[in-house]
């Protein structure tokens, strides 16, 4: 109470945190908890499948895909910085690059799944590995998809010249989400392709 009392704001300096980032951080906290449960399930079931195929037999480490997704975090950072500085062409360019990298990642996941399902015969119903693998990677891919919808929306507005530097704070709220999707991939990648293999 004593510390709270000493921070009585004078006149016009009352500045509580902005609601956008706070709301997004709360959403990220909830999403993290969901991912933690799926990760725990994955780790708990490592090596418990009663039948093949095993991760070592069928999984290939998607290094290029990972590089694409992680570098999209850098490009989106550059994009929003350009927006803040009102360099609209650079913003659009970097934003499009982010979109392209994200799409590449999703397509890569699609190709990986196609390979696993049609050539290796691994589906979600095959064994516990299939169950946990598709649900965890799929949950992440779903978040990438949602992110791509957001990226595309902003892109369309940008192409119609409706995105202005004043809106950079709102765009940054979305950027937080995209960073989160990338960070989660690091956890998923480590669990599935390094620990679980």
């Amino acid at each position: 109470m004593a510390t709270a009392a000493s921070t009585i704001p004078a006149g016009g300096t009352w500045a509580p945190p902005p609601r956008g980032p706070v709301g997004m951080f709360c959403l990220i906290a909830a999403e993290s908890a969901i991912f933690v449960i799926f990760l725990v399930a994955y780790i708990f079931y490592i090596g418990r499948s009663l039948s093949g195929p095993t991760p070592r037999e069928v999984l290939e480490v998607p290094i290029f895909n990972t590089v694409c997704l992680l570098s999209s975090s850098i490009t989106i950072h550059l994009a929003v910085r350009a927006l803040r500085q009102a360099r609209m062409l650079a913003f659009k360019l970097f934003w499009f690059l982010t979109l392209a990298l994200g799409a590449k990642f999703l397509i890569g996941t699609g190709i990986e799944w196609h390979h696993l399902i049609y050539e290796r015969g691994l589906t979600i119903a095959t064994n516990l590995f299939g169950t946990t693998y598709y649900s965890l990677v799929g949950l992440h891919a779903f978040h990438v998809l949602v992110g791509l919808v957001g990226l595309t929306t902003v892109m369309l507005f940008a192409l119609a010249s409706k995105v202005r530097p004043q809106q950079s704070e709102k765009v940054e709220v979305f950027v937080l989400y995209w960073h989160f999707v990338d960070v989660v991939w690091v956890a998923v990648f480590t669990t599935v392709y390094i620990v679980g293999r």
């Binding site: 399930a41 079931y45 979600i124 064994n127 169950t131």
Partner: peptide
């Protein structure tokens, strides 16, 4: 989808 998270028959 026939996953096995809680399916004790399949090791769940």
């Amino acid at each position: 989808l026939g996953a096995h998270f809680f399916d004790t028959q399949a090791g769940g």
